[in-house]
Structure formats: C-alpha cells, structure tokens
Design a protein around this nucleic acid. Structure first.
Length: 684
DNA sequence: TCCTAGGCGCTTTTT
DNA sequence: GCGCCTAGGA
C-alpha cells in the first residue's frame, strides 16, 4: 500500500500521523487540520500492517464519527481490511460493551436506553419539589465522578443535597427495576465492570491496542478513567484536542484532562498544530486577541496561512429588529453576488435569539435551517411509537407501558395507572405481567370493572402484535397501525398534519431499516436510534442558524455572530464561567473563513421583557471596537421603516434621502407627515 | 377522566 | 413569549 496520503500533511501533522507506540497528545488549534491528521494516522497504522480491528477511535458525536470513517476509508484500500477498525462515539462503544458484558453486573442485556426527556419524567415522578434540571445535572455529575448514591448520601452536608442524594438512590433503583440505562450509564457501567473484573479489563485492553480520542478537551472524569482502563496494558493512546475550545464544562467536561494529559499518561509526546488553513489572517488575529485574555490554557497561537482578508464588521443596532434587517440585507447582497446560502451562517449564544431572525427570514423569503432545537426522536408522537415498540420487545418496561397505556385515549387515567404501579411494587412484578396473568375479575379488583375490560382488550392486541413480531417484522408493522390506530388519533387535531407526517416518516424509516438489515431485530433498531440524533443534511440551499455550541467543528465562508451583549454573550452571573464564555467566543470567531460580522443591540426583548443592554466585553477584548474599525453608528433608512420619535411617537418612513451622516426623512405619524432628520428618531 | 385557562420560570446541549 | 404544569369544573 502506498503512503502517498502523508504527502499532503505539513511537518507537524505528519509527525503526529506517523507516531506509533506510546501516548501522544495532539494540540490542534481551530482549523489546523485536526480531523485530517487523526484520520491519516488511522490510515497510516493500517498501511503498515497493524490489524485494523485492534484500533479503536472514539468521538463525541455521530457526525464526527461518520465524517472520520468516510475520510479514513478514502485513504485505504478496503480490500486489505478484514475487520474494519472500530470508530464510534463513546456511548456507542459503551453500548456494544454492555451488550456483551452486562451479565457481569447481574443484569440482562435486554436493557433499554432512556434519553434525557425520559430521565426527567422519571425524576419528576420521584420528586416534584426540586427543579428537575438541577436533579438531572447533579445526578449526572455524581455518575460522571463515580459517586454512588450511598456515598452521595453520606457526604451531603446541605439538606438540599441530602434530598438530591435520596432521589438519586430512588432513581437508580427505578432504572435497575425496569432494566433501563441512561446515557451516563453507557459509560459508567462498562467502567464498573472493568473495575470489578480485572481479567476482563486486561483482555479488553489487549483487544484494543491503539486507542484514539477526538475532542479530548470535552472528556469528563469518567471517560478519562475508562480510557485508562482501556490503555492499561499498552499506553498507546493518542488524543486530539484544543484546550481553547473546551465549551462543555457545564456538563461535566473537565479541561484538566487535556491540561494534565502528560502527567496522566507516561512518556507523552506532544505535537502542536498551530497553522490555520481556514480563516483569513484578520479573523485569526481577533480570535487570538480574545483568547489571550484567558489564563487557564496551555498557550498556543493560531498562525494564519491565508491572506489578510476583509476587516471584521461590527454592527450596532437599536434592537433585534434592526439587527435582523441589517443581516438580512447583507445576506441578500451575498446571495445576489453569487454566494451560496449554505456557506452562510448566523451564530448566537442563546437559542432564544433565533426567533426574531426566523421572523425576518420568513418575511424576506430566505430559506434557513435552524440547527438544534427539537430533534426528530424527541417529538412526542415518535417517542410514543418508540414506547409502543419497546413494550412489545421488553415487557418489563413499566416506563414505556405507562407512556402509551392511554394513547390513543382509551379512558385509563392517572388513578388507574397509580393503582397498577402500586400493585407492581407490591408484587415485584412488571405491570405488563400483572395485566397478562390476572384474569378480568382479578384485575377488576384492582382497577374496577370498566378499566379491567379496557386493559384486557389492550393486552389482547399487544399479545397479538408480539406474535406477529415473532413471525415477521414486516407483518408486524402492517398490523401495528391497524390495531392501535395511533396515526389516526391525530386526525383533525391542531398540528396533527405535521405529526402524521413525522409518524409516516418514522414508519418509512423503520421499514427501510428492516429491509437493509433483515437479520436485525426491533430491539436492535431501538437501541440504534437511542444514540442517534439525526442532524438534517448539510446540503440544503439554506442559511444556517445555530448556537455556538452546535457550530463546533463546522466552518462557513460568511459568518454572523449576533447578541454580543453583556448578559447574553458572555452570559454572566451565577454558575457562569467567564473563561468558558470566552472560549465560546473563540470557537464562534474561528468558524468564519472569509468574512465575519459581529453584532450587538441596545435593547432586546427577552423572557417577556424588553431589556437595555451593554455591548459585550468580548468586542473590545478581541480588538474590534477601538477606533480602528468602522463602527456602524448610523443606520440606513429606507421607505417603509418604522421609527419612533420622542414627541410624535411611532411613524413610518415615506421618503429617505441621504444628508451627510444622517438621512432626511419624510415620516407619516398617524396621518400627519413631517420632515425629520434621522438622528432624532430611532428605528423599531 | 378530560379539558382549558392561568401561573411560573427559564443558559448553553451530545449521547 | 412560550411551553409546561396544575388546579378546578364539566
């Protein structure tokens, strides 16, 4: 096999790519060819004869995993590979491991993965007093730092934390009883197994001789410990990351992992990739200036390889409507000049800022794509179907059963569910089993005659479907809708049309899955999609808008960052970390390739109130608002603009002519026309 | 059991 | 401003 693919690397990239044994830390700045380097290394290891099946590459997102897979496989001759290297997310790896070794913990491997929404519902059902989001994050924190419920209980000082620890214990018991596994468990349980069974730990480490980790700055303590286990017999660990791009501290990622990598793993070789191939030098300069204000960093500077480029524009607007208008004007011009909409993106720190943008885009008739927000599998109708399928494959899943027992409505309310729940606890049997084993009379004694009959009819349908499923997956799918009329239950309800479209898509998707993977079961399908977060295709001819978090790893020729105001970006106050906010600023700026526009407003409507705002400190820290740059002080006015005057109130511009820095405006104030200079009015 | 009107409280988000 | 939850009446 030829190793020509090494030729397109620069010296540092090559140095990293051909490193074979021992620990390697690749500090890769934004746009420095990080993915290229790590995929080349993967291809290189294979090209020199290392068994691909002994190479494990871990990523955080499915998107990163598939991108790497594609790029690595382009470099290698597939005919030379018997078993492909394992390249997947941390969570997927955990899932695969648990499928094989769950029995080590005395649990069945027919467990079901719950998502955050399920987790919230469970926690809500355990406790209604403490904010669910606090419970979610605290319990996650416990799990990611390997603190058991009893440890949490014994160390809790405050009453609040004793309560939380208590809820944590109940939550864990609930998961165990229903054989559920949350996202944290996908990492925690494998670790516990490896900790318990030394022989298996050794074996597993031997099996994966070369371990690579992408976005290492985002790993948490648990992931680090898991990696230690995996590398315990060989120390062949190669991680890529950028301490300046660590933006997930709020969910337990610890920047210490990358800062202390050389102490954690022996004889570490460090390679820095500082040459940036993405952005103009001007953009990079501002990015460097901003990040230099952080103290907790390894210290690295992006070195440009491109030309100087356009200066970064700063937009000052009265409010979000004016801000939107300016950006839309610019985007129209860009598109008119031949730029493609997919090369343009708007970023914000807080998702709520997308609303005025969306309105503006709709009005202007520009197509856009809002990334993030509600995911396909998070939609209520899809989750209902998944719950149906889960209960059909796993009868111990009380949780899913309760979700769909009254969907579509069949008259089973909260009281009935509570009675069944109590009985389930009393008998230590899943609700499903009770419904199945009890005859109608026995069931009547628990829930009454009418409910008993309803539930028996329901169970008969479920049992029929279970049979159909055993016979043929396709036949099962055919009879599913006939049996429960789930889709039909959205006839003639508000937004029922959209929901039915989603349901159709889901039915279509699952059919397709079974055609493509005839040997896989419904259960396999359910596990597969539990880790799937379906990101719509990037090929759409639309302007993208998303949070800065979502933008990591992406790049756009023309970029707008809005909401540069204190309180919005950086978010200030309790629990916020200014250095992490700054890293976010850095991530945002470095997404831009050719042009960058940063925008702030004086006032914004947020959480039901209009707030007066100060411009973000990041603008001056990045060297963007000290004289040298043209600050857009004067808005453009045109016919049709709405304006506000101190005395005359609101009016609409009928005519606008430029007069020096200002505009001479003819304004219609409720029928009364007046000529007024633009400096005396404000745009709204 | 179901429906609807009003109160409340909110970062960031992948798996 | 919007979505989620709860209380109270049908």
């Amino acid at each position: 096999m030829s190793d020509n693919f090494l030729n397109s690397l620069n010296d540092s990239q090559k140095d990293a790519a051909i490193h074979i044994d021992g620990s390697l830390l690749i500090l890769a700045g934004a746009g420095s060819g990080k993915t290229k380097t790590i995929t080349t290394r993967l291809a290189y290891l294979i090209s020199i004869g290392i068994d691909p099946s002994t190479i494990l590459t871990l990523t955080f997102t499915n998107k990163a995993a598939s991108e790497m897979r594609e790029r690595a496989f382009r470099m290698i001759d597939p005919s030379m590979i018997n078993t492909p290297p394992l390249l997947c997310t941390f969570h997927k790896f955990g899932l695969l491991f648990l499928k094989f070794h769950m029995s080590e913990l005395g649990r069945k491997n027919s467990f079901i993965i719950i998502d955050n929404d399920d987790k919230k519902r469970i926690l809500k059902s355990i406790d209604k007093e403490i904010t669910t989001s606090l419970l979610v994050s605290e319990i996650s924190k416990y799990k990611n730092t390997l603190i058991t419920p009893s440890e949490a209980k014994s160390t809790a000082q405050l009453k609040l934390y004793q309560q939380i620890a208590d809820i944590y214990e109940k939550y864990e018991a609930y998961l165990l009883k229903n054989n559920l596994v949350d996202f944290d468990d996908l990492l925690l349980l494998p670790y516990m197994i490896l900790e318990k069974n030394e022989e298996l730990a050794k074996e597993t480490s031997q099996r994966y001789q070369y371990v690579m980790v992408d976005e290492y700055q985002d790993t948490n303590e648990l992931q680090y410990k898991l990696l230690r286990k995996l590398c315990s017999t060989h120390n062949n660990i190669c991680v890529v990351g950028d301490d300046d791009q660590s933006i997930y501290g709020w969910r337990g990622a610890t920047i210490k992992n990358i800062l202390n990598f050389s102490e954690h793993f022996e004889d570490t070789k460090v390679v820095k990739l500082e040459e940036n191939y993405r952005s103009t030098n001007t953009i990079l300069e501002h990015a460097n200036q901003l990040i230099e204000h952080n103290r907790d960093r390894l210290g690295k500077k992006l070195i440009g390889t491109r030309k100087k480029g356009d200066s970064v524009r700063v937009y000052e607007s009265h409010d979000e409507n004016e801000e939107t208008r300016k950006i839309i004007d610019d985007i129209k011009k860009l598109i008119a000049s031949g730029e493609s909409a997919k090369d343009i993106a708007i970023l914000f720190r807080v998702n709520a800022l997308s609303r005025s943008l969306e309105e503006g885009f709709n009005k202007a008739g520009i197509s856009y794509r809002l990334i993030g927000g509600m995911k396909f599998y998070e939609r209520a109708e899809i989750k209902d179907l998944i719950a149906y399928f889960r209960i059909l494959t796993n009868t111990t899943d009380n949780f899913s059963l309760k979700r769909i027992i009254n969907k579509p409505k069949r008259g089973i309310g909260k009281t009935t569910i509570d009675k069944l729940d109590a009985k389930s606890v009393e008998l230590k049997k899943p609700i499903f089993t009770i419904l199945e084993e009890y005859n109608a009379d026995e069931l009547s004694a628990i829930v009454g005659k009418k409910n008993s009959r309803t539930l028996k009819v329901f169970m008969a349908s479920v049992m029929d479907l279970r049979e159909a499923l055993e016979e043929s997956k396709m036949r099962f799918l055919d009879s599913f809708e006939d049996t429960f009329d789930y889709r039909a239950s959205y006839d003639n309800v508000p937004d029922g049309f959209d929901r039915q479209a989603n349901i159709d898509e889901f039915y279509g998707y699952i059919r397709d899955y079974f055609i493509q993977h005839p040997h896989l079961s419904l259960e396999d399908f359910l596990n597969e999609i539990a880790l799937d977060s379906e990101n719509s295709e990037l090929t759409d001819q639309a302007v993208s808008m998303m949070s800065i978090h979502s933008s990591k790893g992406l790049e756009y020729k023309h970029l707008f960052i809005i909401g540069l105001e204190e309180g919005f970006f950086p978010i200030t106050g309790d629990g916020s970390d200014i250095e992490e906010e700054r890293r976010l600023g850095y991530v945002g700026i470095t997404r831009a390739m050719d042009t960058l526009t940063m925008s702030f407003v004086h006032s914004r409507f947020y959480k039901g109130k209009r707030a007066t705002l100060l411009k973000s400190r990041f603008l001056s820290e990045a060297g963007l608002i000290k004289g040298s740059l043209q600050l857009e002080k004067h808005s453009n006015y045109k016919k049709g603009d709405l304006v506000q005057h101190k005395i005359f109130g609101m009016g609409r511009v009928q005519k606008a002519t430029k007069a020096g820095k200002d505009y001479k405006l003819t304004i219609n104030f409720g029928g009364q026309r007046r000529d007024i200079l633009s400096s005396f009015v404000e745009k709204i």
